[in-house]
Computed example of a mutant assay.
Amino acid sequence: MEHNYDEPVYLISVVAKVLSIHPQTLRQYEREGLIEPSRTDGKIRLYSQRDIDRIKLILRLTRDMGINLAGVDVILKLKNQIQEFESLINELRLELSKKENGGKSKAVIKHQSSFDLIFYEKK
């Protein structure tokens, strides 16, 4: 059964077990504003695959790189801002290429970059 990347389907106990962390850690991340799980009508937290990937990133930053939660918050905000700027740049390139082609939409994106955090495991 395949789920949408953003579909909230995982209970806190499942996420905690899969990631080998205490559910209280997930609650703390939520209190700090680092994650925002969905809630059922009964107020039960449900996590999507996107949430889980974000938690994995938080864990890599805190465990592997020794960054505190305030630093993680700054990194995540900067990462989102960079993605927004990249989207805006691509939209502007598209607009520019439409104008250069006399209104005909033939877009050519000459350069596209992405901000990725790459971690190397110690051997």
Rank of each mutant, 00 (worst) to 15 (best):
Y5D: 08
D6A: 12
D6W: 12
D6G: 05
P8W: 04
V9S: 07
I12T: 04
V15Q: 01
K17E: 13
L19R: 00
L19V: 08
I21N: 01
I21S: 03
H22L: 08
H22I: 12
P23D: 06
T25I: 10
T25F: 09
L26E: 03
L26H: 05
Q28A: 14
Q28Y: 15
Y29H: 02
E30R: 09
E32F: 15
G33Y: 04
E36D: 06
E36Y: 13
S38L: 08
T40A: 09
D41N: 13
I44Q: 11
R45H: 03
R45G: 01
L46T: 06
Y47C: 00
R50N: 15
D53Q: 14
I58V: 04
I58F: 03
R63M: 06
R63I: 05
G66D: 08
G66Q: 10
I67W: 01
N68E: 01
N68K: 08
A70R: 14
V74P: 03
I75Q: 04
L78P: 02
Q81P: 01
Q81I: 12
Q83Y: 12
L88G: 04
N90A: 14
E91S: 14
E91C: 11
R93G: 02
L96N: 04
K98H: 07
K98G: 00
K99E: 13
E100I: 15
S105D: 12
V108M: 05
I109T: 10
H111P: 01
F115A: 15
I118P: 01
E121Q: 09
K122W: 08
